[in-house]
């Protein structure tokens, strides 16, 4: 997706804006993950007309989590199921939810904020940025059907086969265990650092499996697809030594980056691209708030994202009320 044209001062292509139907809201929430949906619940319950604009489907990264075990009220629950329940609550409150939208233009600097999608122009008194993060992909020039980022989706294609897992964090080790549970014959884990960062418990469970090999100080230099196989070139980051290995598929879990290219140049971001906010989730722009994984912070969990969303919505309500009162 191309970054939208910046129009911080509201001087976008007015003729194009006028051709689209205008939808008026009090609060526009960009992003339908748990932070955005929680903000929507609080905003709607504060009697604010609210819309969520979601690039893909509501639920965010939680949709990709097989089982969530740190969410109060559930010993264990599938991420997609939990998010569907939250979405149902959001819709029940009368929040408009537009999914699979592409945001083409933003104007956040004026009192009235506008967000233009391919179909509509949305106006709002306040905007909450809750676009979350997305998985980092391998920085390789390859478009192979055999390079994956979802073990739940694609793991079963490799039952009885050999796969490469890229990354040494919690996601990589958790997904390795899931792949092993499916019946993957052999897994090679490569981590660019000289150690794996995954928690001790999950590392112990993976390391005691005799069909898993872990290579630290190793990065993927190239992946080439051959008939039914991937030829992977690995480089030892300490010695520079190159080796090749053949696997049936490659699963990549090397972390996430914030989805903030939409706001770059609009609100203040930190050097890593996260939105800088006050403790009350206010950004550098008046009437623009942020919540969830997209915010610069230490802990990123469903529960902390929900707290952010709640605060952002309550602060947005206060901002709108004070503006009305003059």
């Amino acid at each position: 997706m191309r970054p939208p044209a910046k129009s911080n001062t509201g001087c976008s292509n007015e003729s194009r804006v006028q051709m689209k139907q205008i939808k008026k809201f009090n609060v526009i929430i960009l992003g339908g993950g748990i932070a955005g949906m929680t903000a929507a619940i609080f905003a709607a319950r504060a009697n604010l007309k609210t819309v969520i604009l979601e690039e893909a489907v509501c639920g965010g990264l939680a949709n990709w989590t097989h089982s969530i075990e740190n969410f109060p009220s559930h010993i264990s629950i599938n991420g997609m199921e939990l998010m569907e329940r939250v979405l149902s609550q959001v819709e029940n409150l009368g929040v408009e939810v537009d999914q699979a939208v592409e945001i083409e233009r933003l104007s956040l600097g004026n009192e009235l904020k506008t967000v233009e999608t391919e179909s509509f122009t949305y106006t709002g008194d306040a905007v909450i940025l809750a676009t979350g993060r997305q998985p980092i992909r391998l920085d390789l020039d390859i478009d192979s059907e055999r390079v994956h980022s979802c073990a739940v989706c694609d793991g079963s294609a490799y039952i009885g086969k050999r796969v490469l897992v890229v990354g040494g964090g919690n996601s990589a080790f958790d997904e390795t265990l899931y792949l092993l549970s499916l019946g993957i014959r052999e897994i090679v884990i490569v981590e660019a650092l000289d150690h794996c960062c995954a928690g001790g418990g999950v590392q112990k469970r993976v390391r005691r499996r005799d069909n898993v090999e872990i290579k630290n100080s190793t990065r993927v230099k190239a992946v080439e697809q051959e008939t039914g196989l991937c030829r992977v070139t690995l480089e030892n980051t300490a010695t520079g030594k190159i080796e090749e290995t053949f696997v049936d598929g490659v699963f990549v879990f090397i972390g996430q980056r914030p989805n903030t290219w939409l706001f770059s140049g609009h609100v203040d971001l930190d050097p890593d691209g996260y939105v800088v906010t006050s403790p009350n989730m206010e950004t550098s722009l008046s009437g623009v708030f942020a919540a969830g994984d997209v915010v610069r912070k230490t802990y990123r969990y469903l529960t902390t994202a929900m707290a952010d969303g709640s605060i952002a919505a309550m602060r947005a309500e206060r901002y709108i009320r004070e503006a009305r009162e003059g």
Partner: peptide, 17 residues
């Protein structure tokens, strides 16, 4: 598709449009 595949759900939402 698969019923428990989040990417399938996301693609399906786009395909509705």
């Amino acid at each position: 598709f698969k019923k428990n595949c989040p990417a399938c759900k996301a693609l399906d939402k786009m395909l509705e449009k």
